[in-house]
Nucleic acid binder design. Structure first.
Lengths: 231, 231
DNA sequence: CATTCGTCAAGAGCAGTGCTCTCGTTTTTT
DNA sequence: AAAAAACGAGAGCACTGCTCTTGACGAATG
């Protein structure tokens, strides 16, 4: 009912934002495990207990950061993909893939929060489902557009087994009109994409792959080819 | 020089083993963040400071667990693959892949330690390099054997760019005699494999994919096909 | 055999953490 | 103006990793 923002509400929003900003900085330097409410409070010149007026627990603060991360990654992917001509399906795939990697490399700890090992004792509340699928929604649209344009020509084999048909229906919500085989090929391609980014961000390529952007680009093209997405 | 084990050495080895066992149990239930030296000591009926006689710091205990994890995963993959006929390259690939997934699903927190987000503030010492590549060495041998047997027929495009040639040499150590294109296809296939396992173990498939083993099996076959590994 | 020396468990203690509760104060609502 | 809600500060609890000192035990050496 109250569309007018009282002074208290305004300063509360301000402080909430300041808390998440400082927390995000801490996250960027020390990782999720190093996020300390007391340190945030100290940096704000507050007493630690005052933070609990804004976030009832450390996990709630973490949840806010996770949702922000989902949205930041999703927005980065959306923007990169939106800059491509609609019919350049391979170009859109490459742009979206590089956007994922670029964001992950720039924000490794935030990326770890969303695609890495779950934080112990913490489980994502339902609030995150809305933001969680932004990146993958973009990828699904690319696959669906390519399929509906008749530009997807995957090989005939191997075919998915019958028992995964029900699961395919769940995933198809992201790429309407696409047959089961393509659904699973899309999943495999995403797996290649995010698996590669995980390898790189989590340090598995150290002392092994140096030309990381070029190597990733090639992996992206291999994944597109496996999908049946031609040049 | 001393090949004889004194009583003291024996009890020390015994206690060290007991510590890692209890720590592994804690890891399995509470994850890496929940690993507490004091809790381990409590469970052993010791005082917390006594643990430091055996592991100078929490990170050292964690390192021991990580090395154990590498070896456990590596051994599981080696055994599963060794049970296959040498010439059944696709069968070996499927067996090794399922071994990775089965072990990861059975030991999610240990898997997270190995292939998940790195523990904050912790970086793996050089001791781990020996054990770290056991699983991927098996996978490399399969690719090399299939190639040398002339059973690998990857499509001609896309070709890897020139700038990643030096990196391919590093990776080729795991699969001698294999050309650059196949090296990168192998990397992409591993990416699919571990990316999929990450998705599943880290909870991204919750409420989406239920027939997990079958779905993974199909993903493995898609990855094999992308590699050029026929039936 | 006796003594020295290294190893060990125990305990106290430090600095840090998440979180709870209470106590005045201030701001909003009634 | 009075009641209610929100707020910051502070003390405190239980927990953590880690350090230092103390005293006891066992093993190799004289």
């Amino acid at each position: 009912m109250t569309a007018s923002r009282t002074a208290r509400e305004r300063v509360r929003a301000e402080l909430t934002r300041e808390i998440t900003d400082i927390a995000r900085r801490q996250l960027a330097t020390d990782g999720a495990g190093g996020l300390s409410l007391r340190a945030v409070a100290r940096e704000m010149g507050m007493v630690s207990s005052a933070i609990y007026r804004y976030f009832p627990s450390r996990d709630d603060l973490l949840t806010a950061l996770i949702i922000d991360g989902y949205n930041a990654l999703g927005q980065a992917v959306e923007q990169a993909e939106a800059a491509c001509p609609r019919t350049a399906h391979l170009g859109r795939w490459l742009a979206a893939g590089h956007a994922v990697r670029d964001w992950a490399v720039a924000h490794p700890h935030e990326y770890a929060l969303i695609y890495g090992s779950p934080v112990p004792g913490y489980q994502a509340p339902q609030d995150t489902v809305a933001a969680r699928l932004r990146d993958v929604t973009v990828l699904g649209a690319i696959v669906a557009d390519a399929w509906n344009a008749g530009e997807l020509h995957p090989p005939a084999v191997p075919e998915p087994p019958a028992e995964v048909a029900a699961d395919a229906d769940n995933i198809r919500a992201l790429m309407p009109g696409v047959p089961d085989d393509v659904v699973w090929r899309a999943m495999a391609s995403w797996s290649t994409l995010y698996g590669w980014v995980n390898f790189e961000v989590f340090g598995q390529f150290n002392n092994t792959i140096e030309s990381r952007r070029a190597a990733f680009d090639h992996a992206l093209r291999l994944a597109a080819a496996a999908l049946g997405l031609a040049t």
